[in-house]
Nucleic acid binder design. Structure first.
Lengths: 192, 192
DNA sequence: AAGGGATTGTAGCAACTGCTACATTATTGG
DNA sequence: CCAATAATGTAGCAGTTGCTACAATCCCTT
């Protein structure tokens, strides 16, 4: 009978904890439900992580890491030809149904970051940094300013995503169309 | 003349509850601390609001209302001359120290909205709608497209604010340099 | 095989959660 | 003034919270 009592470590626990948190949120996460999701006991979680705060901190770092490698694997096979195409590609990726749980968690991380909760700010900063790198690598090959353009698109993207989550998706999209940004989105050098 | 003096009602409770929530957050808010902040008992809060969910819902609606009237009173005495000036004015307002507690709460509302918590989405939507109206009323008088421009600036603004809360204020500002606002932003000293 | 550290189970504590039952006081209409 | 209703206080319940004490078991080294 392979009723093997698998030895547990942080490394085996974290993926299950992350899965639970992605589904049920960070704020309401308490030890016993987390332990159940990881097929352990609260006793064990505290044994491995010390206390809840450290657990959340490590969990957030792990999630940021997972997000980072996910972005690495999502590197587009082909470069977009325009900034607009680049923006749309990234926006579409952020709105994939599979991405939804992560997006929901993301805003919780931002909120915790704003409130100064331990670990939140670091994780949020890492994830944004990574996304910026990724975005820059996805910029059109002939873009006159890939670095600044990526930063600009990131700002626009996050604003668009946020408005989307509060029911103003249309507002953001119409804003993009109705501005001189249209040319900027097209990646054409400014002649203004 | 109606009743001479109501001892305690939702109307007298809500401001104190809002103050407490602005300081300590929504997620961790529980009845007894809320009651203490409002100089009552948990018993009374439930008497007036029915249950906690309804309390939070009404509290969020009240906060959205307060925010709305605050924006009304913050109507600029003079119209900005450019979109850039308009953007900077609103951004500066959002970064005032007095605005900080509200900003922190705002991201919690966005997070709750993303998670579908009752009342959060409605409050967030109202607040964004109001901010959009306000922004539109603050657009330059000669703007070719005040409606679309306001939507664009709002998207940019929210992205900028969010990046600021996760430690990427500089990223957003540098991104703006590469945007359609660049012409007016160029040559300005960077501040961080 | 024995010792010893690493790992895990069981039980429980004190504080807190939303909420309720019951009793009491205050206010007001008849 | 008295009764009805609104408003408040007291006490507590059942469940959850993070965390701990204590003991048992595992596995590796000697």
């Amino acid at each position: 009978m392979p009723s093997t009592k698998t030895q547990m470590s942080k490394e085996t626990l974290l993926p299950k904890l992350a899965a639970h948190v992605l589904q049920h949120g960070l704020g309401g996460a308490s030890l016993r439900p987390l332990a159940k999701a990881a097929e352990t006991s609260d006793r064990m979680l505290l044994y491995h992580f010390g206390n809840k705060e450290a657990l959340i901190r490590e969990l957030l770092a792990y999630i940021a890491e997972v997000y980072s490698t996910a972005l690495d694997m999502a590197l587009g096979d082909s470069r977009p030809k325009t900034r607009k195409e680049c923006f749309e590609r990234v926006l579409a990726q952020g709105r994939q149904p599979a991405m939804q749980p992560f997006m929901v968690l993301w805003w919780e991380i931002v909120a915790g970051s704003a409130r100064g909760l331990p670990g939140y700010g670091e994780a949020a900063g890492e994830m944004i940094t990574k996304q910026l790198e990724w975005l820059q690598s996805q910029m059109p090959a002939d873009d006159p300013d890939p670095e600044g353009g990526a930063r600009y698109l990131l700002t626009l993207l996050e604003g668009t995503l946020m408005l989307g989550t509060v029911g103003h998706k249309q507002t953001a999209l119409e804003g993009l169309l109705a501005s001189s940004l249209a040319s900027s989105l097209a990646g054409e050098p400014k002649g203004d």
